[in-house]
Structure formats: structure tokens, C-alpha cells
């Protein structure tokens, strides 16, 4: 899986209230949620994000509330992958469960700048900065998460591995 897009840069401890404020979480539909992604912190994000774009965060990305509305809003906005120094644990599960890949790379998270064009190779954990001609490695995705992605998310994984076994 390879993605190409431009960087939206964020800092440390981006919480899920910042990703999608509660007042917009009275619906569950991805397209509706995407309209309000980062409404309070980066109001221009929702209207100018392009398919394939990459969010780059610092440490503890996605902390706070367990709301799945957060990764859903990001995925529905067209973002292909999130790169950060580290991720909060519930957000990490939620993102993989809905098929939004995350990569951990301290160097990339530090050096990438807003607007840089990137090419991201998910399976090999390779991040290439096309604007500045530099590349970075990322921590490989754990095998279990890879199985989830290969199955097409948790729903498919459960369908294939659990319910069939039971039946």
C-alpha cells in the first residue's frame, strides 16, 4: 500500500475533542463528521484537505475520549495515514479497527513540515519527503495489526475468524 499527499502538521497531545468537538458528535456518519474535523484547531482543514493527505503529529496523538468519531472523521476527510511520534492507546485501536493506518516515526514527525509532499509505503514503513528529498523509516506495524489490515479491519476479521468458527 502506497500513498501520496501533503502534510498537515500538528503538535503533541492532539486530543479527540480537538479532532472532532463533542457538539458535532450527535451524528455517526463519516461524511458529516468530516465537515467538522479539527473545527476548533485548524478550521481550514476540512474544506482544503485532499485525498491522500497525511497528518503528522507529535507525541500521544489522539489522547482523551474514546470517540471513534475522531478517526472516522479523519478517514472520511480523505487522509490516508497518520504519522506521529506516539499514539494514545484507544485511538490506536480505533484507527486500525476502521482501516486507518498509523505509523510511528520520531524523526519524520520532527522534521516534516506543513505542506511537504510525501510518499508513504505502509508495508515497508518507508516515508519519503518528495519536497525535501529525504526519507525516513517507521516502526513496523505489529503482525497482529497487519492481520487486521489484511482482513480489511476488525469487522472482517471477526466475520472470518470468529463467527465462522462458532457456526
Amino acid at each position: 500500500m502506497k500513498y501520496e499527499g501533503k502534510v498537515w502538521k500538528f503538535g503533541d497531545d492532539v486530543d479527540t475533542d480537538l479532532i472532532i468537538p463533542s457538539r458535532y458528535c450527535n451524528v455517526s456518519d463519516g461524511a458529516l463528521l468530516a465537515k467538522h474535523a479539527f473545527a476548533d484547531g485548524k478550521p481550514e482543514f476540512a474544506s482544503t484537505v485532499s485525498p491522500g493527505d497525511v497528518i503528522v503529529g507529535g507525541r500521544n496523538f489522539g489522547c482523551g475520549s474514546s470517540r471513534e468519531h475522531a478517526p472516522i472523521a479523519i478517514k472520511a476527510s480523505g487522509v490516508s495515514v497518520i504519522i506521529a511520534k506516539s499514539f494514545a492507546r484507544i485511538f490506536y485501536r480505533n484507527a486500525f479497527n476502521i482501516g486507518l493506518p498509523l505509523l510511528e516515526s520520531v524523526d519524520a514527525a520532527e522534521e516534516l513540515q506543513e505542506g511537504d509532499r510525501l510518499s508513504v509505503d505502509l508495508i515497508h514503513g518507508k516515508i519519503e519527503n518528495l519536497t525535501r528529498g529525504k526519507s525516513y523509516g517507521a516502526r513496523p506495524i505489529p503482525p497482529f495489526m497487519e492481520r487486521l489490515i489484511n482482513a480489511g479491519g476488525l469487522v472482517e476479521h471477526i466475520r472470518k475468524e470468529k463467527l465462522q468458527k462458532r457456526a
Binding site: S66, R67, E68, P71, I90, R93, N94, N97, I98, G153, L154, V155, I158, K162, L163
Partner: peptide, 11 residues
Amino acid sequence: VGSTDMAAVMA
């Protein structure tokens, strides 16, 4: 956990 995990637990 999030909602997808919860759905899997419920199932």
C-alpha cells in the same frame, strides 16, 4: 475502547 471494538465484544 472505541465503538468498533465494542461491536466485536457485543458479538
